Computed example of a mutant assay.
Amino acid sequence: MTQPARPCGRFAPSPTGPLHFGSLVAALGSWMMARHRGGDWRVRIEDLDPPREVPGASERQLHTLQAFGMTADGPVWRQSGRHPAYADALRRLLASGDAFECRCSRSQLEATGGIHRACVANDSSRPAAIRLRLPDTTLEFEDSVQGVFRQSLAREVGDVVLRRSDGFWAYQLAVVVDDAAQDITDVVRGADLLDSTPRQIHLQRCLGLPTPAYTHLPLVLDADGQKLGKSLQSLPVDDSDPWPALIAAWRFLGQAPAALARSGKPELALQRALAAFDPARIPRVHGQPVSRIDTVR
């Protein structure tokens, strides 16, 4: 398949809570990259894990994005309504031999560090997961920020779960199917997903789907140097006053501070700042630990 002519980016949050500052950085980075290329920007709610979802979280996330001046082009997709597309992709992978049933438990794979290279379980009564068979090869791609990334699929990743034994779809399958269905040409997301990209590229090839360009942004760290989590309250994303967090996110992406001025509505300010947006300024390394954003008021 060939890439669509019009550039298209996306932001795909999981409805597990309100957007935190790290999520805002990913949303702003993807929005800016899409608009910088003259393309569309889509929003997709990744609601495939009901036990982890928080009621009303997706509506609050969408409200936050709008308050910060970012509105999706076209309807918002929800993965919970995409089950037939995932089932069709899975049938094709099973028919081609690229996917297989597996009844191995996590404890049974402890000896290999949790990496599945061959089935070790023979309990036919245990519900089966469906895994993607990964070859013993090294896959590399070039990320626009992180540079060349290489990964040994069999040794570092192992056979990837596509549908869990409890029947829920796995992220790796859903994201590949939906990126292609939405004509996504540019995936911009946090660097915590960098090592998931080679397996996704392999899955795209198995399904005959296009591979988008990838940009993995530096992570936002907390005061202890850990990835900022949704549970942390040190960096509130305040819908009623978006300016402090919006300006902080702009600066976190390495952009010229003066280009995003606190003036007028956020959506108009972002449009003005777009002319100064420079992807080459995005830092490769993770940001310095961040604990407050009220210094930019």
Rank of each mutant, 00 (worst) to 15 (best):
R78L: 11
V176I: 13
V54P: 04
A67E: 12
R150P: 00
A248Q: 07
A174R: 11
S105Y: 09
V161W: 05
G167S: 06
G229L: 09
S234D: 14
L193W: 01
Q200S: 09
A5I: 01
T71Y: 00
C206A: 14
A181Q: 14
L62Q: 15
R52Y: 12
F141R: 07
H20E: 07
L274T: 10
T112R: 10
M70P: 02
G97S: 02
Q204D: 06
F100H: 14
W169T: 12
E59W: 02
V25Y: 00
Q3E: 06
W169E: 10
L153G: 07
G208I: 10
T16L: 12
V176N: 09
A280V: 05
P266T: 06
E59G: 15
C104W: 11
I247C: 14
C102D: 07
A154K: 06
P127T: 07
I201K: 03
R155C: 01
R92D: 12
V148T: 15
R272M: 02
P51H: 11
L93W: 13
A85P: 01
P7H: 11
G225Y: 04
K265D: 05
L48I: 15
A248H: 13
P236T: 09
A191L: 07
A191N: 12
R155F: 00
Q66I: 01
V157I: 15
P4H: 06
R199N: 01
P18W: 12
W41C: 04
Q3Y: 00
I247E: 09
D178L: 03
V175S: 08
R52Q: 11
G287K: 11
A72R: 02
Q108P: 00
S30T: 03
L219V: 04
